[in-house]
Measured scan of single mutants.
Amino acid sequence: MTVRVDGVDYEFSSLEEAVRFALKMAKSKGAEVQLHNGTFHVE
């Protein structure tokens, strides 16, 4: 599972870890999280 934040990809071994990271980053940026074909994008 890959989480992309500001064009940088972060790899996670589990969906749970990836979701937690994506939500944490989105909250800190006041951004939204989108899921596309198994890849999260924080914008």
Results as ranks from 00 to 15, higher is better:
40 F>C: 15
9 D>Y: 11
33 V>K: 02
5 V>I: 06
36 H>P: 03
10 Y>V: 02
1 M>N: 08
22 A>G: 01
19 V>G: 03
7 G>C: 13
20 R>P: 00
15 L>G: 04
8 V>M: 07
2 T>A: 04
32 E>R: 13
3 V>P: 00
43 E>S: 12
19 V>M: 11
41 H>K: 06
18 A>I: 02
14 S>H: 03
12 F>H: 00
6 D>M: 05
12 F>S: 00
10 Y>H: 05
40 F>W: 13
23 L>G: 02
5 V>A: 03
38 G>V: 06
36 H>W: 11
9 D>S: 11
43 E>K: 10
21 F>I: 01
19 V>S: 05
12 F>D: 00
17 E>M: 05
7 G>Y: 02
42 V>M: 04
15 L>V: 13
43 E>M: 14
6 D>A: 05
1 M>A: 11
42 V>D: 07
14 S>I: 04
5 V>Q: 01
27 K>T: 15
41 H>T: 08
2 T>H: 08
32 E>D: 12
37 N>G: 10
8 V>K: 10
21 F>G: 00
19 V>D: 02
16 E>K: 10
20 R>T: 10
8 V>Y: 06
42 V>Q: 06
24 K>L: 12
38 G>L: 08
7 G>I: 02
1 M>H: 14
15 L>R: 11
16 E>I: 09
22 A>F: 04
5 V>C: 12
28 S>D: 15
41 H>V: 14
31 A>Q: 07
9 D>Q: 06
42 V>Y: 05
16 E>C: 15
43 E>Y: 13
11 E>T: 12
14 S>D: 07
40 F>H: 07
35 L>Q: 06
17 E>H: 04
20 R>Q: 11
27 K>F: 14
24 K>P: 00
5 V>W: 04
32 E>G: 10
18 A>K: 01
8 V>L: 06
35 L>E: 05
15 L>P: 08
7 G>A: 03
24 K>T: 11
14 S>V: 05
13 S>P: 11
8 V>C: 14
34 Q>E: 08
26 A>H: 06
40 F>Y: 08
24 K>N: 11
33 V>A: 04
41 H>I: 14
12 F>L: 01
24 K>M: 12
1 M>R: 10
17 E>R: 03
36 H>G: 06
16 E>A: 10
10 Y>C: 08
32 E>L: 13
25 M>Q: 04
40 F>M: 10
18 A>F: 03
7 G>S: 03
13 S>L: 10
36 H>Y: 11
37 N>A: 06
15 L>N: 06
1 M>F: 15
18 A>L: 04
1 M>C: 15
20 R>V: 09
19 V>W: 15
11 E>C: 15
37 N>H: 09
25 M>C: 14
10 Y>D: 00
37 N>E: 09
13 S>T: 11
20 R>H: 08
29 K>Y: 12
43 E>W: 12
24 K>W: 14
31 A>E: 05
23 L>P: 00
18 A>G: 02
1 M>W: 15
24 K>S: 12
36 H>N: 09
11 E>S: 12
39 T>F: 10
39 T>G: 09
29 K>T: 13
17 E>G: 03
19 V>R: 11
14 S>F: 03
25 M>P: 00
42 V>I: 09
15 L>S: 08
29 K>Q: 12
4 R>V: 08
20 R>G: 04
14 S>M: 03
38 G>R: 03
29 K>P: 13
13 S>I: 08
37 N>Y: 10
4 R>S: 06
17 E>Q: 07
15 L>T: 11
21 F>S: 00
16 E>M: 10
13 S>K: 11
7 G>L: 02
25 M>N: 03
42 V>H: 07
3 V>D: 00
26 A>F: 07
28 S>F: 13
31 A>F: 11
37 N>D: 10
31 A>N: 05
21 F>Y: 05
32 E>Q: 14
31 A>W: 12
35 L>N: 04
38 G>P: 06
17 E>C: 15
34 Q>L: 12
29 K>C: 15
21 F>W: 04
16 E>L: 10
27 K>C: 15
42 V>N: 04
14 S>C: 13
21 F>M: 01
34 Q>M: 12
14 S>E: 04
24 K>A: 14
17 E>Y: 02
25 M>H: 04
5 V>T: 01
16 E>D: 09
27 K>I: 15
38 G>I: 09
43 E>V: 15
27 K>L: 15
13 S>M: 09
10 Y>M: 02
9 D>R: 07
6 D>G: 05
22 A>N: 00
1 M>T: 12
26 A>L: 09
36 H>I: 15
15 L>K: 10
2 T>I: 11
42 V>S: 06
39 T>C: 15
16 E>R: 11
27 K>G: 14
9 D>V: 11
36 H>F: 12
41 H>S: 05
7 G>M: 04
2 T>C: 14
7 G>H: 03
3 V>A: 01
34 Q>A: 10
9 D>M: 11
28 S>N: 13
33 V>P: 03
24 K>Q: 13
4 R>P: 00
9 D>K: 07
30 G>D: 09
31 A>S: 08
15 L>M: 11
16 E>T: 06
23 L>F: 09
36 H>Q: 07
18 A>N: 00
33 V>C: 15
39 T>R: 11
16 E>P: 04
30 G>K: 09
29 K>S: 11
7 G>Q: 03
43 E>D: 11
30 G>W: 08
28 S>Y: 13
31 A>P: 03
38 G>S: 05
41 H>E: 09
43 E>F: 13
33 V>H: 03
4 R>H: 09
29 K>W: 12
8 V>T: 08
7 G>V: 01
41 H>W: 13
41 H>F: 13
28 S>L: 15
11 E>P: 08
25 M>D: 02
23 L>Y: 13
15 L>A: 10
13 S>E: 10
26 A>R: 04
26 A>C: 13
27 K>R: 08
13 S>Y: 08
42 V>W: 08
1 M>P: 11
15 L>H: 11
39 T>D: 06
18 A>Q: 01
32 E>P: 06
34 Q>N: 10
29 K>A: 11
39 T>Q: 10
34 Q>S: 12
4 R>I: 08
25 M>I: 11
27 K>P: 07
36 H>S: 09
29 K>I: 13
41 H>A: 05
35 L>P: 03
9 D>F: 10
24 K>D: 15
12 F>W: 01
40 F>R: 02
2 T>K: 11
34 Q>T: 14
35 L>Y: 13
15 L>Q: 10
38 G>M: 07
26 A>V: 06
28 S>I: 15
28 S>R: 10
18 A>R: 00
35 L>D: 03
28 S>G: 12
40 F>L: 14
25 M>R: 02
23 L>V: 11
31 A>Y: 13
29 K>L: 14
40 F>D: 08
38 G>K: 06
33 V>Q: 03
42 V>A: 06
9 D>A: 09
40 F>N: 05
29 K>G: 11
31 A>T: 12
42 V>P: 07
12 F>G: 00
6 D>R: 02
13 S>N: 11
33 V>M: 05
22 A>C: 15
32 E>N: 13
32 E>C: 15
20 R>K: 12
39 T>N: 07
10 Y>A: 00
17 E>I: 02
39 T>W: 07
21 F>N: 01
10 Y>P: 00
22 A>L: 05
15 L>W: 13
1 M>K: 08
21 F>E: 01
29 K>D: 13
6 D>H: 04
17 E>D: 10
33 V>W: 04
26 A>N: 03
34 Q>P: 03
8 V>H: 06
39 T>K: 13
35 L>A: 05
17 E>W: 02
18 A>S: 02
27 K>Q: 15
4 R>Q: 04
41 H>Y: 14
35 L>C: 15
43 E>G: 13
16 E>G: 08
36 H>A: 07
11 E>Q: 12
12 F>I: 01
6 D>W: 05
4 R>T: 09
28 S>A: 12
26 A>W: 09
42 V>G: 06
39 T>I: 15
33 V>R: 01
33 V>S: 03
14 S>R: 04
25 M>T: 06
3 V>Y: 02
9 D>L: 12
1 M>Q: 07
30 G>L: 07
27 K>Y: 15
34 Q>H: 14
22 A>D: 00
30 G>S: 04
18 A>P: 00
14 S>N: 09
10 Y>L: 02
21 F>D: 01
8 V>Q: 08
26 A>Q: 06
25 M>A: 09
1 M>S: 08
40 F>G: 06
43 E>I: 15
12 F>P: 00
5 V>D: 01
26 A>Y: 07
12 F>N: 00
13 S>R: 10
37 N>T: 06
20 R>I: 10
31 A>I: 07
4 R>A: 03
11 E>I: 12
36 H>D: 06
7 G>D: 05
32 E>I: 14
39 T>S: 10
8 V>P: 00
13 S>A: 10
37 N>V: 08
39 T>M: 13
32 E>A: 12
2 T>L: 09
30 G>A: 06
18 A>Y: 02
33 V>I: 11
31 A>V: 12
23 L>A: 07
5 V>M: 05
28 S>P: 07
41 H>C: 14
24 K>F: 14
5 V>R: 01
41 H>L: 12
2 T>G: 02
36 H>L: 12
12 F>C: 07
23 L>D: 12
12 F>K: 00
4 R>N: 04
